[in-house]
C-alpha cells in the first residue's frame, strides 16, 4: 500500500516527523517572527499617536477612499492567491498562471496606490519622515509593509516566470503555497494597519 504515497510527489514531501513539509513549517516560524516585527512597529506608531494625539491633523492628510480602495485590492489579491495555490495543488498550470498574474497585478496596483499616497503626503501635505513624529512612525510602518509587498510581488513573479519553464515540477506547488502564505500574511498585516492606523483616526472621541 505504499504505492499511493510513492506516486504523489506532494505526499512524498510530507514524510517528516510531524507530517508538515519543512518549507511550510519554516515559513510559519518566519511568520510568527514577522508578527513580532510588525508588532514592534505598530506599537511604536500607536504609542506616539497616544502620547501626541494632536501632532498633525491626520484626517486632513489621509485619503480614506484611496486607502479603502487599496485595502479592497489587497483582499482581492489574497483571494486570487488562495485560488492559485489551489490550482497549483491541482497541477492546473494555466489556471495557476492566471491567478498568480492577477495576484501580482493587484499587488502592483496596491503598491502604486501607496507610492501615489506617499508622494501626495510629501509634496501636497508636507508630511515627511522628519516633519513630525507622526511622519516618522507612519512612513516607517507603512513603508516596511510596502517593502514586504514588493518582495512578495518579486517572489510570486519569479514563480510565475518559473512556471513557464520546463523545470517547473509538481513538487513546486509547495513552493507556491509557501510564497502564498507570505502573501496572505502581508495581507493580514494590512488589515491590522488599515484599522489601527487609518480608520481609528476617523473616530471622533
Amino acid at each position: 500500500m505504499s504505492s499511493h504515497t510513492d506516486n504523489d510527489p506532494l505526499e512524498e514531501l510530507k514524510k517528516t516527523s510531524t507530517g508538515v513539509e519543512n518549507k511550510k513549517l519554516a515559513m510559519w516560524a518566519f511568520l510568527a517572527s514577522d508578527c513580532m516585527f510588525f508588532g514592534t512597529l505598530i506599537s511604536t506608531h500607536l504609542i506616539y499617536r497616544k502620547v501626541y494625539p494632536d501632532v498633525e491633523d491626520v484626517i486632513d492628510i489621509f485619503d480614506i477612499e484611496l486607502t479603502g480602495f487599496s485595502t479592497f485590492i489587497l483582499l482581492m489579491s489574497s483571494f486570487l492567491m488562495a485560488l492559485s495555490v489551489s490550482a497549483a495543488h491541482k497541477n492546473n498550470l494555466p489556471s495557476m498562471r492566471w491567478c498568480l498574474g492577477g495576484t501580482i497585478f493587484f499587488g502592483l496596483i496596491f503598491l502604486g496606490c501607496q507610492v501615489y499616497e506617499f508622494q501626495h503626503f510629501v509634496f501636497d501635505k508636507d508630511l515627511t519622515l522628519s516633519s513630525s513624529i507622526f511622519g516618522s512612525t507612519f512612513f516607517v510602518l507603512t513603508g516596511t509593509h510596502g517593502v514586504h509587498v514588493a518582495l512578495g510581488i518579486f517572489w510570486l513573479g519569479s514563480w510565475l516566470i518559473y512556471s513557464f519553464t520546463d523545470r517547473y515540477k509538481r513538487e513546486n506547488a509547495l513552493d507556491v503555497e509557501v510564497a502564498g502564505l507570505y502573501w496572505h500574511f502581508v495581507d493580514v498585516v494590512w488589515i491590522i494597519i488599515f484599522t489601527v492606523v487609518y480608520l481609528v483616526e476617523y473616530i471622533e472621541f
Binding site: S17, T18, L25, A26, F30, S33
Partner: peptide, 10 residues
C-alpha cells in the same frame, strides 16, 4: 528557523 524545522521534522 533552521533548527526549529530540523528538530520538529527530522
Amino acid at each position: 528557523f533552521n533548527f526549529i524545522t530540523t528538530i520538529l521534522n527530522m
